[in-house]
Design a protein around this nucleic acid. Structure first.
Lengths: 155, 155
DNA sequence: TATTGTTATACTCTATAACTATA
DNA sequence: TATAGTTATAGAGTATAACAATA
């Protein structure tokens, strides 16, 4: 007979990494409703558009690093965005292996339509928190992320 | 000429949903290093083992709901875990459409090996925070998640 | 030799739906 | 009719590596 004792009382529902993953999924879904459902961009495509929109023309490699995309994800997002005529690329004069990416007029217009909507959603989400909690969240994210990167790199 | 003005100054690096997604990815990766790299379980498989380990024998449907898996993810995770002889299932006497899942001795042994390691990692991550911040994080997660679910359901 | 970027391939996930057996 | 679970299938995403062009 097995009476499966709850010996350690380990419970996913109270496990911070699990809670954080579930939260991030739900929060991301609210933002993805904007760029996926209304504007037909994938997450990777939206990240590329967002970085170009806020920072101006950038080398493909720089965008990939900022947006957390590997070179294949980047290559495919760029190909799709080019086909949709949302970005253009030109050779990088300083390193002819690379490309400089620019938003086209259409890409810029799309960025200008999307950002106010995502911002409004962020504001709505943050309205659930007190000012102190919102400020604490910023600090907490930075601290936890640094610790996670440190732990991850150690294996 | 385009001087791509940072008109709106929208910046992913300061966008809470993006910051949260990146954080959750990095935190999840530190936990996945344990169950994927060392014990060859997928995320879904690990969630099923974790719920059975902490709560004992459960109906497949109950596990799916708790673990946030849909019926197909659940069906596949169960099939893989059964093939690995980590869980067993028997007919549910009360509803013969369903199954009751149990950890095998091997499954229980695996659970007992994994949980202390994931707990230790969680503790290490939380050690980056003050006690107040750790407590605030719990509240913040609950509040933000409720708000996100509300927003998501409205579209 | 190393790096940027593309292509190929296989594998995994996801989403949808059809299907079964029970209820 | 509705539910638990399986199977089928197509599309998307992921990982690995081979490859071309440039450094």
């Amino acid at each position: 007979m097995d009476d499966h004792p709850p010996q350690a009382a380990f419970d996913l529902a109270c496990f911070m990494p699990y809670r954080l993953a579930v939260l991030a999924d739900d929060v991301s879904a609210t933002i993805a409703q904007v760029y996926v459902d209304r504007f037909d961009l994938s997450r990777d495509e939206w990240r590329v558009v967002a970085w170009l929109g806020s920072r101006g023309d950038l080398a493909a490699k720089a965008v990939a690093q900022s947006a957390g995309l590997d070179k294949m994800q980047m290559s495919r997002a760029v190909a799709r965005l080019e086909k949709k005529k949302l970005i253009a690329r030109r050779a990088d004069a300083e390193d002819r292996r690379g490309h400089i990416l620019t938003l086209t007029r259409q890409g810029r217009a799309l960025y200008d339509k999307i950002t106010p909507l995502t911002r409004a959603r962020e504001a709505y989400l943050l309205a659930a928190l007190t000012e102190e909690e919102a400020a604490a969240l910023d600090t907490i994210i930075d601290k936890l992320r640094a610790q996670a990167l440190e732990l991850k790199s150690r294996g």
